[in-house]
């Protein structure tokens, strides 16, 4: 990376000692090749074990549980829960029955929410990064301020939004009703249909700085000469943005959009802090939905089946996304 100043180090600190040489001689002679092969694995070992223990094993357990009728009676000894085959899955995808219908509804809400949130976050992030590419007074301060939503702990930020969205004491209704007189009465924001929009706004507020951060980093890699050459050819600034900046950001965007998509689709924190344990129907995101199906009703089997379906969906989307963006890379 050219943009990061290569950290200087002190090579003179190296040859300080003869004693490590001596220690080397005393070591039992493991064949050199074996040692060399073993070292990287030894270094990865702790990371690998922990990821396996906390992510992979639970995931496999989760898949197993999704085939079981695991309710609160079996928490102490989940192995003894009866096998139920595909029952949990069947129940989850029977879309004309209450459970399946609710899941499908929640799925569509999440899809719409994700599209809106990722779309706006990306747009704002891109616009801000491009507009702040050139130096101007106050740029550094502005950039620091823009990163504040990213730095704030989720619960502190979202609880503040919850306060702003209060029906009688919140800022939003004060501005809309008391000051601008847009609405004839004070609408509810955290229950009913409006809650979906409240959720989108909070989510955009929270995620766009990450897009901004990544895109700013990406912009620094565009060679200055490109712009100079374009300017010589008479391209105006808007044309430069369209012809040089946006195409150059493609590799960053490819990763960024995927990451934003996955984070937003799986987002639990925002709705959980904004609405508490029971999300309103119109903002019933999938994570919250599964959480409630599992921990409120203590039906882990069915909750796990829904999680597995969610994972499958995300895997398929990710695979298609990568395939599609790769193919366009090759075509281009």
């Amino acid at each position: 990376m050219t943009a990061t100043a290569p950290p200087r180090s002190a090579p003179e600190a190296g040859p300080s000692d003869g004693k490590s040489v001596g220690r080397g001689r005393l070591r039992p002679r493991v064949p050199d090749r074996l040692r060399r092969v073993g070292v990287p694995y030894l270094m990865l070992f702790p990371a690998l074990i922990l990821e396996l223990l906390i992510h992979l094993v639970p995931m496999i357990v989760g898949i197993v549980i999704s085939f079981k009728g695991l309710t609160q009676f079996f928490i102490r000894d989940w192995g003894s829960a009866p096998w139920t085959g595909l029952d949990n899955y069947r129940m989850a995808v029977k879309f004309n029955q209450p459970v399946g219908e609710a899941l499908l509804h929640s799925f569509w809400v999440t899809v719409l929410f994700t599209l809106l949130s990722v779309g706006f976050s990306w747009l704002i992030g891109t616009a801000a990064a491009i507009l702040m590419q050139d130096a101007f007074r106050g740029r550094a301060v502005l950039r620091a301020i823009f990163l504040v939503p990213y730095a704030l702990p989720v619960y502190a930020a979202v609880i503040t939004w919850a306060f702003m969205f209060q029906q009688d004491t919140g800022l939003v209704n004060h501005v809309l009703h008391d000051q601008l007189h847009v609405t004839s009465n004070k609408p509810f924001w955290l229950i009913g249909d409006n809650s979906f929009w409240a959720l989108v706004i909070v989510s955009v507020w929270k995620s766009w700085p990450f897009a901004f951060l990544c895109l700013m980093a990406g912009l620094q890699n565009i060679p200055r000469e490109l712009y100079e050459a374009a300017a010589m050819d008479g391209a105006g600034i808007w044309q430069q943005i369209r012809k040089i900046t946006l195409p150059s950001l493609r590799p960053v965007n490819q990763v960024l959009v995927l990451v934003l998509f996955l984070w937003t689709f799986n987002d639990f924190n925002t709705p959980f802090v904004l609405f508490g344990n029971s999300a309103p129907h119109s903002a019933d995101l999938i994570s919250i939905h599964i959480y409630q199906s599992s921990f409120i009703t203590w039906n882990f089997g069915s909750g796990s089946a829904m999680s597995v379906l969610l994972l499958l969906f995300l895997l398929v989307v990710t695979a298609f996304y990568l395939l599609f963006t790769r193919k366009r890379d090759v075509d281009a």
Binding site: E51, I54, H55, L56, V57, P58, M59, V61, G62, I65, I75, R76, W78, V259, L262, F265, N266, F268, S287, I290, Y291, S294, F300, G303, S304, S307, V308, L310, L311, L314, T318
Partner: peptide
């Protein structure tokens, strides 16, 4: 692993810990 829904391994992890 970063990409998986937290909710997916929350339940099993809870059970494993218990």
């Amino acid at each position: 692993t970063q990409m998986f829904p937290g909710i997916l391994f929350l339940l099993p992890l809870f059970l494993i810990f218990v």
